[in-house]
Computed example of a mutant assay.
Amino acid sequence: MDKTKPWIKPVLEFGPLILFFAVFMLFRGQEVIVWGEAYSGFIFATLVFIPALLVSTLIQWWLSNKLAPMQVATLVLVIVFGGMSVWLNDPRFFKLKPTIIYVLFAAILGASLVLRRNWLGAVLGEALPLDLEGWRKLTLRMALFFLALAVANEVIWRNLSDTTWVYFKTFGLPVLLFLFLLGNAGLYRAHALPEKAAEDDTA
């Protein structure tokens, strides 16, 4: 992946989501007949999204020879819950998927705090060198952030329209993540480590 052109990674990461959004907007409010079954625009977009994400993930694995645990977990949950939505022709399963992902991530981060393990630093240490106290604070904040995202997803999909949820999923979540990372800039500065010290700290 490091030797490929810089635009390839964001295309592979965000391409399937943008495709989902485009297909939903194109077929919103319509019925699409696939294999003799009538699907809503939302279910049809989900049907397109699943293989797109699978292909994208396989290409990323082929280019870099590795996948992050988050990518693997996301792919598995998309296949399982997206597949259930298509199989049962019920959008609720796919809408529930982000809640499960965020609760899972929050639980993993919470476990790392209880066990006093720097799992977040092991994953992000090369890109973001922090001391152990910095990782502890960031882990706690990120766990709470993921819990908040899970609650937000539940509130939106249970009370608002499909279109609102799709906008939230496609644009709202990335914006919230960006704002979270930006909002922790002070923590990054206060607990920054020199590159060599960071390598020793996460080893």
Results as ranks from 00 to 15, higher is better:
Tyr188Pro: 01
Ala68Ser: 15
Ala143Asp: 03
Lys5Tyr: 11
Ala192Gln: 03
Gln30Tyr: 07
Leu128Asn: 09
Ala152Pro: 08
Arg158Lys: 14
Pro51Gln: 12
Leu67Thr: 06
Glu13Phe: 04
Gly82Phe: 02
Phe178Ala: 12
Trp61Leu: 14
Ile18Tyr: 14
Ala150Val: 08
Val55Pro: 05
His191Pro: 02
Ala185Val: 14
Ala143Trp: 02
Leu58His: 02
Leu75Ser: 05
Arg141Pro: 09
Thr139Gln: 01
Leu179Tyr: 11
Gln60Val: 07
Val32Thr: 11
Thr170Ala: 12
Gly186Ile: 08
Ala150Pro: 03
Leu179Asp: 12
Ile156Ser: 03
Arg117Asp: 04
Phe180Cys: 03
Ser64Asp: 09
Arg189Ile: 11
Ala198Asp: 04
Phe146Tyr: 09
Leu179Ser: 10
Ile18Thr: 08
Phe14Met: 11
Thr163Leu: 13
Asp162Ile: 08
Pro6Phe: 12
Glu199Met: 15
Phe180Lys: 06
Asp90Cys: 13
Ile79Trp: 07
Val155Asp: 09
Trp87Met: 12
Thr74Gly: 05
Val155Pro: 12
Val86Asn: 00
Tyr188Ile: 09
Leu120Pro: 01
Leu19Val: 08
Ala127Gly: 10
Ile43Tyr: 04
Arg92Tyr: 15
Ile101Trp: 02
Val166Thr: 02
Leu140Arg: 05
Leu187Asp: 05
Phe145Met: 06
Val55Trp: 10
Val55Leu: 06
Phe42Ile: 05
Trp35Cys: 14
Trp157Met: 01
Lys196Cys: 09
Ala198Gly: 08
Phe171Pro: 04
Val48Thr: 11
Val23Phe: 04
Ile59Val: 13
Thr164Ile: 15
Leu147Ala: 11
Leu67Trp: 08
Gly125Thr: 01
Thr139Asn: 03
Asp131Lys: 13
Pro69Tyr: 15
Phe27Leu: 13
Ser112Glu: 05
Asn159Leu: 11
Glu37Val: 14
Thr202His: 05
Phe105Thr: 02
Trp157Ile: 01
Thr164Trp: 09
Leu177Val: 13
Phe94Asn: 00
Thr46Lys: 09
Leu124Ile: 14
Phe21Asp: 02
Pro69Asp: 12
Leu187Arg: 05
Val78Trp: 01
Asp131Tyr: 03
Lys137Asp: 09
Phe49Asp: 01
Tyr39Lys: 08
Val55Ser: 03
Glu154Leu: 07
Ser161Ile: 13
Phe24Asn: 04
Leu75Val: 12
Gly183Met: 10
Phe42Ala: 00
Leu77Trp: 00
Phe81Ala: 03
Phe42Lys: 01
Lys169Asn: 08
Arg136Gly: 01
Pro129Lys: 07
Ser40Leu: 07
Leu104Lys: 10
